[in-house]
């Protein structure tokens, strides 16, 4: 599965044109936690309908930068973001932007599966409900079913949509969280180490899912596993000490990186 994943990534598909469009672009982004300068001068273009992986040693700022893309850092009082991040050429830090609307466009999946203590159905229906995506109950049913199908969970849960989401296994919970994010039909899905709390079998399923989701969504994934980055992504960005060291096609990055630090990290010399 490892190599086949790589192959599909570089095989030209009808979506090639869309793939090369810039979806998210960051210019000179600085992030501070109080006095601490956590992210320095990050410039990156994230392409549409592509999986971009952020790698780097822990504490390098990759998660922090990820959370800037849907302004999740707003919920942390001491955090300050400077510079410009735009999605479809609209600056998301513009004072006119409502983070609530932004987050409908940029969904997020977290490190630890965090289903709400509600039924499976309610977990997925939550987003469509708050954003008013369904006019009728039947619409909502369709959206939930569709999202669960996209998350590859439908067959496992279709008979027990009313049972609590917290009763699922860890991998199922994480796919439920992905279904929850997908149900809002965002354009970008951010994933913060989505497999770090999962066992290898569950991880494989989630990776397969990411691969399928790429057809419809722009995906940014933070991962601590280089193998995972190589398996699921087309583009890889390497962070180190708050700096973006290198950003490149994934196969180039893992075979012939431009930067010595990337080379060292991939070779396991630090991290």
């Amino acid at each position: 599965m490892n190599m086949s994943g790589m192959t599909t990534a570089i095989t030209p598909t009808p979506k090639v044109a869309a793939m090369n469009e810039t979806k998210v672009s960051a210019r000179d982004v600085q992030v501070y936690y109080g006095d601490k300068h956590a992210i320095r001068d990050v410039n990156i273009e994230i392409r549409s309908r592509t999986v971009t992986a952020f790698i780097g040693p822990s504490g390098c700022g990759k998660s922090t930068f990820l959370r800037c893309i849907n302004r999740m850092n707003d919920t942390i009082a001491s955090c300050r973001v400077e510079g410009n991040i735009s999605i479809d050429s609209e600056n998301i830090y513009d004072p006119k932007v409502d983070p609530v609307q932004l987050r409908a466009k940029v969904g997020m999946v977290f490190q630890k599966p965090n289903p709400f203590p509600k039924s499976i159905f309610e977990n997925v229906a939550y987003g469509p409900r708050i954003h008013g995506l369904a006019a009728k109950k039947s619409d909502l049913d369709d959206i939930v079913a569709s999202a669960l199908q996209k998350a590859g969970l439908w067959n496992e849960v279709k008979d027990r949509l009313d049972s609590p989401g917290t009763g699922l296994s860890g991998g199922q919970q994480q796919r439920l969280c992905i279904a929850r994010a997908v149900a809002v039909s965002p354009e970008v899905i951010l994933m913060d180490e989505p497999c770090s709390a999962l066992d290898p079998i569950a991880t494989a399923k989630v990776e397969e899912l990411i691969h399928e989701l790429r057809e419809n969504f722009t995906i940014v994934i933070v991962t601590h596993s280089m193998q995972q980055a190589a398996r699921v992504s087309q583009r890889t960005a390497m962070f180190h000490l708050g700096n973006l060291v290198e950003e490149n096609d994934t196969d180039k990055m893992f075979t012939n990186p431009d930067d010595q630090r990337t080379q060292d990290y991939i070779m396991g010399r630090f991290g």
């Binding site: 919920t75 969904g107 965090n114 289903p115 987003g127 708050i130 929850r180 809002v184």
Partner: peptide, 25 residues
Amino acid sequence: QSLRDGSYGLGATQSETIKKVILPA
């Protein structure tokens, strides 16, 4: 906090998060 994050990440406002996620929990 992870439940709050989950809700904010879906684009819920703070009051929606409180009313629909935190209070039920």
